[in-house]
Structures are given as structure tokens and as C-alpha cells.
Amino acid sequence: MKIVLNGEPIEINVTTLGELCSIEGYGGAKIATAVNGEFVAERTRAATRLSEADRVEIVAPRQGG
């Protein structure tokens, strides 16, 4: 399945957002997620199914003004 992760097109064989986070190496990281512009809480990542062309954002704390 082709999706866009943090602005980069990738091809990956996953069913849910939880799986994506795990396979991409974010396990245990301090992150937040959104799919197609909608916030997805940590507790619902495992149940959030991904579809072709979904746009996934994975963000983390950073310096800010």
C-alpha cells in the first residue's frame, strides 16, 4: 500500500496506524499522530485502519518560540 508519511511517499505493508508506528521504529517514542489532517490519539492508533494514499503525520517535541 502506498501512503504519505511526513510528506514522503512510501510503500508499506501495514493495516493500522499502530502497526505503521511500530514497523517504522517509533515504538516507545514521545510522538503524536494525525491521519489525513485528523488527530489520532495514542490509544486509538491500533484500531485506526490505514488506506491507500492516506497522509500520516508523526510529530514530536521540538524547540519553539
Binding site: N6, G7, E24, G25, Y26, A29, K30, I31, A32, E57, I58, V59, A60, P61, R62, Q63, G64, G65
Partner: peptide
């Protein structure tokens, strides 16, 4: 004040910054 930015799984810069803050 702090912000959120796209995170690379490899660098994990966010975790380091968060630990410091």
C-alpha cells in the same frame, strides 16, 4: 514555549529535546 515537528524514527530528536526541557 515549545512546538511539534515531524519526527524521524532514526534520529529521535524529539525525545532528546523533551528530556532536556
Amino acid at each position: 514555549t515549545v512546538s511539534l515537528r515531524r519526527e524521524s524514527a532514526r534520529a529521535r530528536s524529539g525525545q532528546k529535546f523533551w528530556d532536556m526541557i
